[in-house]
Every structure is written in C-alpha cells, then in structure tokens.
Amino acid sequence: MKYTAILLLLLPIHLFSQPRLGQINDADGYTNVRSEPSGQAGVIGQINDGEIFEFDGSGSSWYKVWTNYGLSGYMHSSKIQDVKLECGCNGYGGSNSKPMLRYTEAGRVLSVCGTIDSVENKVIYGTEMLVQDCLHHEKLNEPSTLPQKVELKDGRISITELANLPVSKSWKYNLVPVTKNSYFFIDDRLITQINAGAYSFPKFTANELEEELKELKSGLSSASLPLSIDKALVLALNDCDDCEVLFLNLGDYLGGGLDGENGERYLEAVRIYKLNRK
C-alpha cells in the first residue's frame, strides 16, 4: 500500500446537506481529490486507504468531499464507500472540540479529537487531543493541555507534545524544545512511547562552534548554570568532539555544582543528547 502526502489547509466551513462519512474504494491505495467535479479538473490532493472523510452525496456522479484537517474538493462517486458508524468526539471537550483525523485499518477505527489552532506544513496544531477507538468507545490516551501537533504519515497517527522541556530564553539563538510524548501506531496493536525528548536546535559551522565553545568555557564560572547546560547540550548536538567532551564532563569543568534542580536539569539534558544522537 502506498501513502501520499496530503496538502493540509485551514479547515473551511461546509454547508452541505446531510454529510456522510466515507472512505475510498480504490485498488491504487489512494484517490485524487479534484478542484472541480470533473476528471479533467486539477488534482489538489489525495485521500489514502484508511482515511475517513465526510462527503455530500447529493450530486449525480461527482461528490463534494472534505477532511477534518481542511482538504476539500471533489471525488467521483464510484471511488467512495459509506462508513456506517459513529466516529466523532462522543461529547468530549466542549463546543470547540471536533474530529481532527479519523482513520481505520486492521479492524481498528480511530478518531483524534481536540481543538485545532492551525494547520501548517501538513501538520495539525492544537490542544487536548484525544484518541478514541470508535468501535469500542474507548479513550486511548489522556488529553494534555500542552500545545500539541498531530499528523498522519505512512499509516501512523502520531501526537507530539510541544514546549514541554525547560529551556532558557536568554541565549541569542532560538532553542525550540520538543517532547515526542506519544506515538499511536495503527496496526494489530497500539504502541505508546512515553517521554522521548528532542530538541530542534541551531546548526553551527565549524568556525561558529569554535567561537561558541570558547565563549561558553570562558563564562562558565559566572554564567547562569541552566543556560550553560542548554548551550553545552546544543553545541554537543552539533557533531563537535570538543563540545561533546565539555558537555559530558560539565560537572568537572564547573568543579561541582550539578546538584538539586541543576543536577536534574543536567541529567535530563544528557538523556535528550543520547536520544538525539541515535
């Protein structure tokens, strides 16, 4: 089965009569979504096997279709089969909570509900995302109030929590912390991976690394220790042997001082380093 990237747009408002749930009926594993109800119209995206979408079946041979994440266009009626089940939010989350993704494979039907803040670069951003097993009416995770993103790729729904690691804000470079907190694999089982931390960090040239390392070393005695830990981590992640030596032996360079909250922060930084170096 092949999976094709889908262009995600901001969620439009649909005013069609009696929307129904459907999935594709196509041996190719995907069906094109077109800008107009015609086989000659431009292709604006694809819907893959397993994805559940909404459609207006009032047309003759071409139906208006739309996904919860914003892809909207037309599909030939022969490529659509009805989905006869309730796969919404089941009353969860209040007036702003709505399905973001719905997907079925290997006998499992999942709905991801929550509040959509935006859709950028094929990724949905929002909060309080809840994954439900529609057939058994089971909640499969605990929703978080932290910012999150959700995406469907290669048959896998993944939810990632954002801004969940402590990062100093006073460095001249922008550090973007990410905690990959839960992955949901759609298969014959559901696997959850907890607390796999990661940084999106600035990449330096060799000359920049040399200058940053020199500045870090010279200021260790007077600089903020949390900021020094963050800097040392980022430099070590840049494939710099001397930076790695400094980071992994930071306590020796400081002559102690890595205890209490600072010690916990450093151990967390080491864990992040090891995960990102795999």
Rank of each mutant, 00 (worst) to 15 (best):
G219S: 15
N48R: 02
M1A: 06
Y74P: 04
N207W: 01
K231F: 12
L227N: 05
K214I: 03
S60Y: 07
S97D: 12
L165W: 00
L175H: 04
G59I: 06
K274W: 14
S221R: 05
D242Q: 15
V112R: 05
P147Q: 09
V176N: 06
M100T: 09
L130M: 12
G50M: 09
G256L: 08
L162S: 08
G70F: 02
P226C: 11
L246I: 10
E261N: 05
L101Q: 02
M100I: 15
L275F: 14
W62T: 04
L237I: 13
G251F: 14
E212Q: 13
G73A: 02
L190W: 00
L8S: 04
P166D: 13
A163T: 09
V83T: 11
T179S: 07
D187A: 10
L275G: 01
Y63D: 09
P147K: 12
N96C: 01
S228A: 15
G219A: 08
N90C: 01
W62S: 05
D188T: 13
K79R: 12
R265C: 00
Q132T: 13
V176L: 11
L146K: 15
K172A: 05
T4P: 00
P166G: 03
Y273K: 14
V112E: 11
F185P: 01
D242H: 11
T160C: 02
N181H: 09
S72G: 01
L11F: 12
P147M: 09
D133H: 07
K122R: 10
L146W: 01
E128F: 14
F16C: 10
F204Q: 10
L162N: 10
Y69Q: 09
Y266P: 00
K84N: 15
W66F: 10
K214P: 00
V245A: 04
D56V: 03
S72Y: 07
Q18I: 02
N48P: 06
G42V: 03
I44A: 05
L250W: 15
A196I: 14
I191H: 09
G88T: 14
L254N: 08
P143D: 09
M1G: 06
S35G: 07
P147D: 11
A206N: 13
K274Q: 10
H137R: 14
G197K: 14
A206T: 07
I52L: 15
A269Y: 13
P202L: 04
Y63H: 14
E261M: 09
K274H: 14
S97Q: 03
N195I: 06
S58T: 11
S168K: 09
L175F: 08
D49A: 03
P37A: 08
Q23M: 09
Y125K: 12
K153C: 02
T31F: 02
N181G: 07
I191W: 02
L209C: 08
A269Q: 03
L110K: 09
V245D: 13
L275M: 11
T104W: 14
G70R: 12
C89V: 06
D252I: 10
S218H: 01
L152R: 12
E210C: 06
N276M: 14
K278T: 03
N25T: 03
L101K: 12
F201W: 03
